[in-house]
Design a protein around this nucleic acid. Sequence first.
DNA 1: AATTATATAGAACGACCTTTCTATTTTATC
DNA 2: GATAAAATAGAAAGGTCGTTCTATATAATT
Lengths: 184, 184
Amino acid sequence: MSRSKKKDTLLEVAEQLFYEHGFRGVGLKQIISEANVATMTLYNHFSSKDNLVEEVLKQREERYWSYLDSHVEMDSDSPFILAVEAHGRWLKEQSYKGDMFLRAIEDYAGTDNEIENIARGHKAKLLTYFQLLAQRKGKDNELNLANQFTLLLEGTTSMTTLIGAEKATEYSIAMARTIVQHTS
Amino acid sequence: MSRSKKKDTLLEVAEQLFYEHGFRGVGLKQIISEANVATMTLYNHFSSKDNLVEEVLKQREERYWSYLDSHVEMDSDSPFILAVEAHGRWLKEQSYKGDMFLRAIEDYAGTDNEIENIARGHKAKLLTYFQLLAQRKGKDNELNLANQFTLLLEGTTSMTTLIGAEKATEYSIAMARTIVQHTS
DNA sequence: AATTATATAGAACGACCTTTCTATTTTATC
DNA sequence: GATAAAATAGAAAGGTCGTTCTATATAATT
């Protein structure tokens, strides 16, 4: 088993466990146990638990954007609806229980490390993404529309915890249609 | 200092600390220290940390609903907008950093205690509240509208963590207006 | 085959966690 | 003022935490 395979296994296992039980709810012992790896193998690849959290977040962000990019044709008739639908599918497959980035912001705010910055960076990128979409469609109030759609996606994620991704997405698509139709 | 004053102090301090740093991020030592209370005083009033969390959630739910009730005249012209505005003020004053109930659901899901139930109960009540509002206004698709507004409030709470309560509320009110106007 | 880099199991560290205990002091009731 | 109840400080128990260390084994490179 090559060096990077072990690292990848650790990242996968850690992401899953952190997502399921929270960063503070999972110990390194559990991670190395489920990854079938020795303690020092983890510390060989990651300088600390915080560093592991950082890399997990970076990996998850990459997966999210590659997921969105592969489902949204930005020059289609209704890229906004496509984005909301893609986000809904992501929720159903990967994010049935809250948002890992928001959670990282809450857990690590004011603790003097890079984690909060990475998580906030992801959210800033989401806003930028919708601004770009609004721009391409020639909407005049880009920032306004972008913020409304970011709010919509965040709401969908929260609702998924409460009523499941399927229904949450159904309602958010309905709302997205209303907004697109009635916003210049 | 009477018996109930100490208990109230503990509840206040615990709510503040749990909200700021998360349930798992705060130890009992810190709570009793900031409440100026002995260890056994806490255990005299609460059977365990989990029990303290439960009572904190119950207290916070009461405060939320008395806040909403005092700001929303249910028979007004636009009770939906009033509710969104009231929720926004609540966020600004009490909930600038995520939602304590959602966090409780995530942190304690599948851990065999009452905490998750209390938190989910609060969210169920929110949905019921909006169904009642829709009913009074004679909207035909109550459940649909109620879910959309619940999603809107959840989104506003999340966005507050990212851009602050003021701006988050501004966008959610704009969306609420659009939805009310264009939904039967 | 020899050498170098990685991975291994498992113990040990000090810190912190929740909960319990003890013994003393404060407060309330009669 | 005597008696009972509640709150106190502080230690201790029994865990788990993140991190480091040691000493052995496996794999990769030369």
